[in-house]
């Protein structure tokens, strides 16, 4: 019989290794797939710097002009809360930092658990609200494919199980912790083959757009 501790050991051990392997393999494959498609050189006389433009757009796309903000206020605000929350919970929670320390060999400051807990709740709510928006908003519903909902689910579950583990909801902590880790592993496996890749590729996308505009002397 597999006890919850056995389950926890299993997801902390072999499953995590497998998930890491698929995650890292998939990402390096996907990034190389993109880069290897290359792009043609631009022969037009530059008016500005590709480098400056590219660097600029890496950041500028996180800010919005007034009219765009007004038109998409909901998506922007909820999206911001969700992404920031996810970042804080993922990278500033002490147990997570220990995991990264194991991989990278260095660590950074973590936030008190109570704060992480609060941020998790906010992030979960933001995600729920974004899901409702995806289902209700004509454009988002129209654009959404099965993949969008898969991606939402595999992102939502680690947050939810993490929250439940901390609060010992439904199952005892060891089992819930195991489920939490498993849900992250599912996320890792799904990651390279879905839109979740935008985490990395958005920098490439912003760079290309910014560099092209920079070349033309436009700040985008």
């Amino acid at each position: 019989m597999m006890t919850s501790i056995d389950f926890l050991s299993w997801v902390r051990g072999p499953v995590f290794i497998m998930a890491t392997a698929i995650f890292v393999f998939g990402i390096s494959l996907r990034l190389l797939e993109i880069v290897s498609l290359r792009r043609k050189p631009d022969y037009s006389a530059p008016r500005g710097s590709r480098m400056v433009g590219g660097m600029r757009t890496l950041f500028s796309r996180s800010m919005y002009d007034k009219s765009t903000f007004q038109r998409s206020a909901f998506t922007i605000v909820a999206g911001y809360i969700f992404h920031l929350g996810l970042f804080i919970v993922t990278f500033l929670s002490v147990p997570h930092i220990l995991l990264f320390r194991e991989l990278f060999g260095f660590d950074w400051f973590g936030l008190p658990t109570i704060l992480i807990d609060a941020v998790t709740v906010i992030t979960l709510l933001a995600m729920l609200v974004l899901l409702i928006h995806r289902l209700k908003n004509p454009v988002r519903r129209f654009l959404s494919t099965f993949e969008n909902y898969v991606v939402w689910t595999v992102t939502f579950l680690p947050l939810l199980t993490g929250y439940m583990a901390y609060h010992h909801s439904v199952f005892p902590y060891p089992l819930m912790l195991g489920l939490h880790i498993l849900s992250v592993e599912i996320l890792m496996v799904v990651f390279p083959f879905t839109q979740l890749m935008h985490t990395f590729t958005l920098f490439m996308a912003r760079w290309h757009t910014g560099a092209n505009a920079g070349h033309r002397g436009i700040q985008v």
Binding site: P14, F16, T20, A21, I22, V24, L29
Partner: peptide, 21 residues
């Protein structure tokens, strides 16, 4: 720590990176 995977996942990551590349 409990949150740290038990296996040598850093090495695995290295191999996976090479394979992916």
């Amino acid at each position: 720590a409990l949150s740290v995977p038990t296996g040598d996942f850093a090495q695995t990551a290295g191999y996976a990176l090479a394979a992916g590349a």
